[in-house]
């Protein structure tokens, strides 16, 4: 099943210029991670070494080597959101997340005049206060 899906992704990008990042995005989206077995298959399809693929996977924040099935909330902690009090919300958000939700930091969602801002999936949130952020984490 996994091998089939991977073959399908590789076929979709065959012949593209610079196909590695688009492939990795698709694999990450399909499996939640890019594991060692996937790296081997991708390397073989692109005729590069697994080390080269692994080097790319480990370079970028968006790619994970192990899947994390928990819901994911990203809180912006860049300067503009800091200026609007994002740091003060972190302890409450962490407490609400506990082990159930994966809470990570992101450096800028481009909502810089309306922070604190957060993202869950492809939905973005702005003007968050503590109650709003806690609710967002709890409902994630």
């Amino acid at each position: 099943m996994q091998a089939e899906k991977l073959t399908e992704i590789l076929a979709r990008h065959a012949g593209r210029e610079g196909p590695l990042l688009p492939i990795l995005h698709d694999v990450q989206a399909a499996f939640g991670c890019i594991d060692a077995a996937a790296e081997v298959s991708i390397a073989k399809a692109l005729n590069i070494s697994r080390a080269e693929v692994h080097g790319v996977v480990s370079f970028y924040h968006d790619f994970q080597e192990q899947a994390d099935p928990r819901p994911h909330v990203q809180l912006c902690r860049a300067e503009a959101c800091q200026a609007r009090g994002a740091e003060a919300l972190v302890p409450a958000a962490e407490a609400a997340a506990g082990e159930r939700v994966r809470l990570s930091s992101v450096y800028c969602l481009g909502l810089c005049s309306a922070g604190p801002a957060a993202r869950a999936g492809d939905t973005v949130y702005a003007r968050l206060d503590q109650a709003g952020l806690v609710r967002l984490v709890e409902e994630a």
Binding site: A78, E79, A80, C81, Y107, C108, G110, L111, C112, S113
Partner: peptide, 11 residues
């Protein structure tokens, strides 16, 4: 790749 905090004109 508008990564700078405080910028959103590209977006």
């Amino acid at each position: 790749d508008e990564g700078d905090s405080g910028t959103f004109a590209d977006r």
